[in-house]
Every structure is written in C-alpha cells, then in structure tokens.
Design a protein around this nucleic acid. Structure first.
Lengths: 253, 253
DNA sequence: CGGATTATTGAGGTGTGTCAAGGTACGTGG
DNA sequence: CCACGTACCTTGACACACCTCAATAATCCG
C-alpha cells in the first residue's frame, strides 16, 4: 500500500495526525487526546493527486471519505450536455465525500485545482465514530450544516445578485477562506481560471472576463500568474453585500 | 404552556410521538423503541402558526429546533434592498432550525405557506442526543447531508438550466416531495404563488408567469386555485433533465 | 360590496450569451 | 535554447433571454 501508484494516484504514509499541520492553525479547534487517538487510527493513509485529477466522480460508490490536507479542489455537477456548475471549493481542513458516505452514492464530483494531498478515512468506521465519539459526531453534523449554510449564500448570489456583485462575493468568499488556512501554500494568488469562476457563478466565460475587468479597473483585484490576486478585500466585500465568514474556530476531522 | 398564545403563535399539546402520523408513511423509516422513547421526551410541545407567519428569522438565536408536522413552509434569505432568494421548501417530516441550533445564529428565515404545525424540540438536549443515541445522531448528519445534496441540485438549476428547464425542475421536485408525504393534507395543488417560484428560481415574476404559460400550453401543469397542479409529472421531469429523488425510506426526528 | 392580493399581458430596454478572432503565457520536446 | 502546441485570457459585434414598467383582469376575503 505504501508508495503504491494506482491509476495515477499515489498513496503513501506521511503526516501522523499528532503532527497534523492544520491543528495548529487558529481557524481550527483543538482535539482532546481521546479524539486525536480515534482520528489517528481512523486515518488509513494519504492520497496525492495531481492538478486536474478527479478525486471523486458523481454516481460513484466510495469506501472512503477524505479530509483535504494540502492544495485546492472543487466540487461540481454536470448536466448531460456538458454544462457545469461548481458548487464550492475545497480547502485544507475540508471534509470530502461525507454526502457519498452517508447516502451511498456521490451526487457530485471533485477535482483538484492544484496538486492535492488528502487524508483517507474508512467509511466503514463511521459507525464506530458515532457510537463512541459523540463529540466528533457532533462535529460532523456541524460541518454538514456549515456547508449547507455556505450553499445557501451561494444560492442567494446566483439567484439574486448581479454579475458584478456575484463576482465580488465569490472572490471575497474564497479570499476569506484561503486566508484562514494559510493562503494555498504560500501563493498570494487564487489558483483558478476564469472558466471556474464562470461555472461557479452561472455566467458565461466572456461575460465573466468583462466583469473581472470592471473589478480590475476599480483596483479591487487583478488577474495575474494564472490566478486571481485580491487587492482590496474590503472593497470587494462592500460591493458584494455579503456579511463575511464567522471568525470562530471550527471543527475538522 | 399548554394552549398559551404568544405573539400570535399558539402552543398546545396534541400528538404524542407514539401516534405520530408521519411514522406510518412509507417515506420514513421506523424508530426503535429506544429511539422513540427519546424523541418523545425530546419533544417539548407543538407550535401552530398561520399562513404567512414567520417561524424563524435570520440572525435569530433560537433555543429550539422543529420538525414540521403538517403544512408547508419555505426557507429564504434577503438582501438588504429586499431581493429575496428562497432556498428550499419545508414539508412534513422536515427538520427546521438545525443550522441555527448548531451554529448559534440562524442564517436564514422560515415562513409558513399554509397553516403549519411544528413539533418543538429543545436545543439544549441535542448534546444528550449525541451522547446517548448514536443512531439518531447519525440520522441528523444524514439529514444535513441530504439537504446539502438538494441545495447542490438547486444550485445546478439556477446556475446552468434555462428558465423553462428550471421551472420544470422545481415543479418536479416539489411534486415528488409532496407525493411522498401525502400531498399537503389532501389538496392536489401546490400551495405557492408565482412570486415564490420566481424567488426560488432567480427569475422575475413576469418571466416566471410567461414560462409557466409555456408549460401550461404543453399540458404539463396548470395554475389553479392559488396554486399549481401537476398534470404530467413525467413530462416535466424529462424536460428538466433531473434524475429525481431517491425512493428509499429516509430518517426523520 | 370594496379592498387587497395574485395573475396576465404587452412594450420596450438591457444584462448576459454566443460567435469569432487574436493575443499571451506556459510547457514540452527537439 | 528555440519552436511549437496548448491552455488561457481578451476584445468586439451582434443576438436574445430575461427584466422593468405599466396597465388590466381575475380571485379571494372580510
């Protein structure tokens, strides 16, 4: 299993949970010793995939769930004719595949935006988690409710905000999330293409480009180095009419 | 407490969980005796509100969560200038207020579409649920993940489906949900206005009206008696390009 | 019966989509 | 190190899906 290469994925042991680099971030809450022990044995290994690789496919029946350890990814759905909707972005500390683990079948796909490392957990042990670790079970529910809350806000954006507001919202949102987890491994730039933004906001690529230009003209952001750099986070937030993310530490697994 | 009237709300005892009318529906899974006992004492009472009443308000800090026992409601968010986005509809058996219970503050509001009765649960007892009833905790997480899955599909609709597809999708979705829970207390008609549809789909009222006319011209539905009657569920489903709801029994609390 | 809400319809405007062409940057292989 | 291919970004012209405004009709409700 260690170091094995399977269909382009590389699996190998690396980070023991006790030294998980995410735990020390102020965004995440602490584990008790008991919780940490359980999570450590819950973790089955790590999975590394390259940029552009698909981690989970809609319709798939996966025996695992994951926490993203490093890199960026995104969740999306497709219509039969190829139209794509990106639902959300996956950053370090985010859980991947919970919906599929609970309901049997994935209802969306996940693709890596950068090289990505994921902690692999075994779905079959979820039952034990609920039986013996109520606090972690609570956290799982919290995480699911939090994702629901984010999707509510996205829905509000796509449904009722203008293209300019929407774009400002999305950039604010991603920027706040990235800042909390240490900004994508050092780069100051959000590693997405304009097509990703378009597919997140329900806009065409061309119109997205022209909308981004307006934001750039206002010195709120600029496009650079295959990604987006935020120049004026407050200005974007004000333009979007969004309240911003809560600052409290959040659970993760 | 019993029979008391508070700010237009009426609270009174009625249905003991042991005789809950929802449990016998094939959509819902069974409780074990132990689960049923817990839920029965978890339930604090019932809340009845009239059509148009607001059950929960965005920003509110509620000490309760609810399961909708009868009637219809909807979840929505507002922008400061009044633009409204409806996120989802709440039907019998649906949990209301979980997000607020977990995260402290409601991030959306809930309003009754018809006269509504809700079972009232005490937020403070959620901890005991997680500690002592792993199966119910699992169900809560399942419910949250299910809602997430629904929001994903809505996002896909608003973001990438045309007005006609979107409308067909929404009507199919509501129709399938209504059918599973016994069609809104007997009425064959979905008790919403065209403004609700518009605010769910991110369309204007006028365009919604014209889109509904196209569906009516194709004999897929008709507007009647302050609501929408589905004439050809399969036709709507095909037009929407949606896969439909899972048929398996689902948990509720 | 009158007021309020909801549905309907037409006219005209615009935000956003589509099509098309070209530019720029990057990665790869020679 | 250059040359080429590919992915991505940019811009303009034009079309249309959808929006706003406005007025009227239907329906419900007290």
């Amino acid at each position: 299993m260690a170091g094995e290469t399977t269909r382009g994925h590389q699996t190998k042991w690396q980070t023991p949970c006790q030294q998980c680099p995410l735990r020390s971030l102020p965004t995440f809450r602490d584990f008790s010793a008991k919780e940490l022990d359980f999570v450590a044995q819950f973790k089955r290994g790590e999975l590394s995939v390259e940029r552009g690789a698909t981690v989970l496919v809609e319709g798939m029946h996966s025996a695992h769930l994951f926490t993203l350890l490093s890199g960026w990814a995104f969740r999306y759905k497709l219509l039969t004719d190829g139209r794509r909707q990106i639902m959300n972005y996956v950053l370090p500390g985010d859980l991947v595949g919970l919906q599929g683990s609970l309901m049997g079948e994935m209802d969306h796909s996940v693709e890596a935006l950068t090289p990505v490392t994921l902690c692999v957990f075994e779905r079959a042990q979820l039952g034990r988690l609920f039986e013996r670790h109520a606090s972690l079970a609570y956290d799982l529910t919290w995480i699911a409710a939090q994702e629901e809350s984010i999707l509510d806000e996205h829905l509000l954006s796509i449904g009722r905000r203008t293209a300019l507001e929407r774009t400002a919202y999305l950039l604010s949102f991603i920027h706040q999330r990235a800042r909390a987890t240490g900004a994508a491994g050092g780069r100051r730039v959000i590693p997405i293409t304009q097509q990703h933004i378009a597919d997140t906001l329900g806009l065409s690529l061309v119109h997205t480009n022209k909308t981004l230009r307006k934001l750039a003209d206002r010195k709120l952001m600029r496009w650079q180095d295959r990604g987006c750099e935020i120049l004026d986070a407050d200005g974007l937030l004000a333009l979007s009419g969004w309240e911003g993310l809560k600052r409290e530490p959040r659970p993760f697994i």
